[in-house]
C-alpha cells in the first residue's frame, strides 16, 4: 500500500533540489506567515501553490484534493469563531451583525467583527498549510531525517523515526493483506457484522504486529545491530541557484507588501 504524499515526495520534479534548500524556503515562509497579515497571506498562498503545482509538478487535482481535506477541518472550526450567543435583548447588541436568529430569550448572531476574525484565520491557515504541503510534497521523509541527523538531533530520535517510518508501511501492508483476506473469504454485510469483522481484524493485526516486531529484531541482530542505526545517504542533491534567486526576490517583495499593507 502506498501513501500518496510519500510517493509524490519521491517522484516530484524538485526531487533533486537539495532538501535543505527546500526546507529553508518552506520553514521561512511558514514563520513569515505567522507574523504577516491578510493580503500577504493570499500572496504567499498563490506563490506556494505555484511552487507545488508549477515547479514540483504535483498534479493540481491532487493538490486541490489535499487542500479540500484541510478546508473541511477549517470549515468545521469556523462556526464557533463566528457565531455568538447572547441572552441579552437585541437592542443591547452593539456591533454590526450580518445575521440574527432568535429563540426564546436567546439570540444567535454573526457579527462583522467575528466574520473578519474568521476570514483572517482562514487565510492564515490556508497559507501556512500551503507552506507545509510544499515541504511534505517535495521533501521525502528520509531526506528530512538526513537533515535532522546533520543538524545534530540525537541518534536515538532519528533511529526511532526511521524505524517508525519503515513500520508504517509494513503495518499498512499487513492491514491491507488482512483486509483483502477477509473480503476474499466473504466478508459479511450489515453494520454489526462488519464491526465484528473489524474487531477480529484488529485482534489479528495486533498479533501480526508483535510477530513482525520479533522478526525485525532478529533481522536487526543478523545484520550486526549494536545499538546504533547508522547509515550513509548517498544523495545527488544540488542547490538550485535559479530557485534560490527566485525565493530570495519574492520573499523581499512579500516583506515589502507586508510593510506597505500593514502601515
Amino acid at each position: 500500500m502506498k501513501i500518496q504524499l510519500d510517493t509524490l515526495a519521491y517522484t516530484n520534479r524538485l526531487r533533486h533540489v537539495s532538501p535543505i534548500q527546500k526546507l529553508v524556503i518552506g520553514i521561512i515562509m511558514l514563520c513569515f506567515v505567522m507574523v504577516a497579515h491578510a493580503p500577504t497571506h493570499i500572496a504567499v498562498f498563490v506563490w506556494m501553490s505555484v511552487w507545488i503545482v508549477g515547479y514540483a509538478g504535483i498534479p493540481w487535482r491532487i493538490y486541490l484534493r489535499l487542500l479540500g481535506a484541510i478546508s473541511l477541518f477549517l470549515a468545521l472550526s469556523l462556526p464557533p469563531i463566528m457565531l455568538e450567543i447572547t441572552a441579552r435583548s437585541i437592542a443591547e447588541i452593539t456591533e454590526q451583525t450580518v445575521f440574527i436568529y432568535s429563540f426564546g430569550v436567546f439570540h444567535v448572531y454573526i457579527g462583522v467583527a467575528g466574520m473578519k476574525k474568521a476570514s483572517a484565520l482562514l487565510l492564515r491557515s490556508l497559507s501556512s498549510v500551503s507552506c507545509l504541503y510544499f515541504i511534505l510534497l517535495t521533501v521525502p521523509f528520509t531526506e528530512i531525517l538526513a537533515v535532522l541527523r546533520r543538524i545534530g538531533v540525537p541518534c536515538m530520535v532519528t533511529d526511532l523515526l526511521l524505524v517508525m517510518y519503515r513500520f508504517v508501511f509494513v503495518f499498512l501492508e499487513t492491514v491491507e493483506q488482512l483486509w483483502i483476506a477477509y473480503k476474499a473469504r466473504g466478508a459479511r454485510h450489515g453494520f454489526s457484522r462488519k464491526m465484528r469483522d473489524a474487531g477480529g481484524l484488529v485482534a489479528r493485526l495486533f498479533a501480526r504486529t508483535v510477530q513482525r516486531y520479533q522478526q525485525l529484531s532478529i533481522g536487526l541482530a543478523a545484520r550486526g545491530f549494536d545499538g546504533d542505526l547508522r547509515v550513509v545517504a548517498s544523495s545527488h542533491a544540488f542547490v538550485s541557484r535559479r530557485y534560490a534567486a527566485e525565493a530570495a526576490a519574492v520573499f523581499l517583495l512579500l516583506v515589502a507588501l507586508e510593510w506597505w499593507t500593514g502601515r
Binding site: F141, V163, G224, L229, V232
Partner: peptide, 16 residues
C-alpha cells in the same frame, strides 16, 4: 521485509 531496515535502497545497503 524482515531485514530491510533503512528507508532507501542505498541507505539500507550502507547499514551493515
Amino acid at each position: 521485509e524482515q531485514q530491510l531496515i533503512a528507508s532507501t535502497v542505498a541507505e539500507d545497503i550502507s547499514y551493515g
